[in-house]
């Protein structure tokens, strides 16, 4: 019997496997780490605003972002960055983790497709991220942050757009990692690049023109504009930016899915 391309049982099984392994590997330290990350991100922004800006932001910032709520701006950016980095890490590092654990051959010789397998990781990542972002938002709420929201439908669309961007990037990153045979330098380079280019913690218009243009090649950049429209300004998702975010994100998905089989063979050849 041949598996359908999007085998739901493989997605479910991979989700369950990752959940079980993570729970055993980090019984409580994982959640403490997540809590600390949320507290520090919003807490430091709060202290910085009080100590440096005297509790106020410059007029230029308001012009650039459409909001005078710096903490709200940082909270949305930090939550999105957490979503992106953890999402990309979980799904992107899945295959190289298999390689390190000595299970890549057993996985590749099985008939299950790579897409449902990675969707299983993405589903787990999404669940974990919801937990992490909830902690961060809870900390922000305690500090008086009240992000705007243009409606639950818009919020769902923004999260979906960001999810497509993250999944596309994780597929490409996964192919890069198993081709290069290393994860650390690759992931740090990617995270630094997207932190700089995608406008998570500062408005992109502060960047030189070339970097703004380069940022358009990263799917999280347009996705962040959609997210800002929904959660920072409350104006709702701009249709143009939503289309760009989905198009670039889906392009990454296609490129990743086409590249992965070659990358997997390369990984196998490296160990001949």
């Amino acid at each position: 019997m041949l598996s359908p391309p999007l085998s739901p049982h493989v997605i479910r099984a991979t989700f369950w496997r990752t959940w079980t392994v993570t729970r055993r590997a980090y019984p409580w330290s994982y959640f403490v780490g997540t809590l600390m990350l949320g507290v520090f991100t919003v807490g430091l922004a709060h202290l910085g605003l009080a100590a440096i800006g005297g509790g106020r932001v410059a007029g230029d910032f308001v012009t650039a972002t459409g909001s005078a709520d710096y903490l709200g701006y940082v909270t949305v950016g930090a939550a999105a960055f957490m979503f992106v980095t953890h999402g990309v890490l979980w799904a992107g590092k899945a295959l190289i983790q298999e390689q390190r654990e000595g299970t890549l051959g057993a996985l590749l010789v099985a008939p299950a497709g790579r897409l449902p397998y990675l969707l299983g990781f993405a589903a787990f990542a999404f669940t974990a991220i919801v937990l992490e972002v909830s902690v961060l938002l809870g900390c922000a709420y305690a500090l008086g942050v009240r992000p705007a929201a243009s409606g639950p439908g818009d919020a769902a669309l923004a999260i979906l757009v960001l999810g497509v961007a993250v999944f596309g990037m994780s597929l490409v990153l996964s192919a890069v990692m198993i081709t290069a045979g290393e994860a650390h330098i690759t992931q740090n380079s990617v995270f630094l690049a997207i932190a700089l280019l995608s406008g998570f913690t500062f408005p992109r218009r502060y960047l030189p023109g070339v970097l703004q243009w380069l940022g358009e090649l990263v799917p999280t950049t347009a996705a962040m504009d959609v997210l800002r429209g929904v959660f920072t300004t409350g104006a709702g998702p701009a249709p143009g930016r939503t289309a760009v975010a989905l198009a670039v994100g889906l392009l990454y998905v296609v490129v990743g899915l086409l590249w992965l089989p070659r990358a997997e063979r390369h990984a196998m050849e490296r160990s001949y």
Partner: peptide, 17 residues
């Protein structure tokens, strides 16, 4: 490594449909 023997076989059973 972090799954039991039975869990491993169950997971691979899913991959083989």
């Amino acid at each position: 490594a972090r799954m039991t023997g039975r869990e491993n076989l169950w997971y691979f059973g899913q991959l083989y449909d």
